[in-house]
Nucleic acid binder design. Sequence first.
DNA 1: ATGGCTTAGTTCCTAAGA
Length: 256
Amino acid sequence: MRIVTYNVNGIKARLPRLLEYLAEEQPDIVCLQELKSSDDTFPEADIRAAGYGALWHGQKGFNGVAVLARGTDPVERQRGLSGEPEDEHSRYLEAEVDGLVVASIYLPNGNPQPGPKFDYKLRWIDRLRERAAALLAEERAVVLAGDYNVIPNDDDTFSVRAMHSDALMQPESRAGYRALLAQGWTDSLRTRFPKGGIWTFWDYQAGSWQRDAGFRIDHLLLSPIAADRLVNAGVDKAYRGREKASDHAPTWVRLR
DNA sequence: ATGGCTTAGTTCCTAAGA
């Protein structure tokens, strides 16, 4: 089965691309981020017509995550992370599909840093790590899929120099991500491409796509039981080059 | 040192993204 994470950068603007992707690739599970849509404007009918059941956690204007499942309805397990009751950002949605636990994650960007947005990002990573530990304790097949807004290593970006002051690759951001992995999660793209040089995002600005100036921030983390089933992982890069594309490309893992 | 693009909402500008 193939599980995809795809930051669509606006589900309304991206609906034609998304439906195209579902029809052409027929992924089994798709975790979406940056819906930029409130709950009542999520295009449920179009997605159902494409053959997918859906759960979504929307928010007007920005954020918003969803889980799609081909031929079945994902069963909700949790929306949002505990630990900060006043936090109203829609950034976490966890579901069960065919015995697999999947979470769609949209980790805060954190720019500019230093500042309150960066502090929020670091606190959010800590809260995610708490939830991730509880999931590992269940000893099940789990996939944490999403836009982590963390460039894990220097070889995960086209330019360390261009990005050095960005929240995406600050030592604190990387330490939070590393601590998550250290719980026992497998970074599936890193396993498949240990030398780096694989991008999942290309900025709209400064001809980044044309120059292949990207970085890797969309990740699929596997619990040990899921990692035992890992067959392959990759990026559907061609979708970044289509008309009216998202600035992220669909990123996927195939499990037995 | 800055802006570049794109999307959405409070639209003919501003905020947010990364």
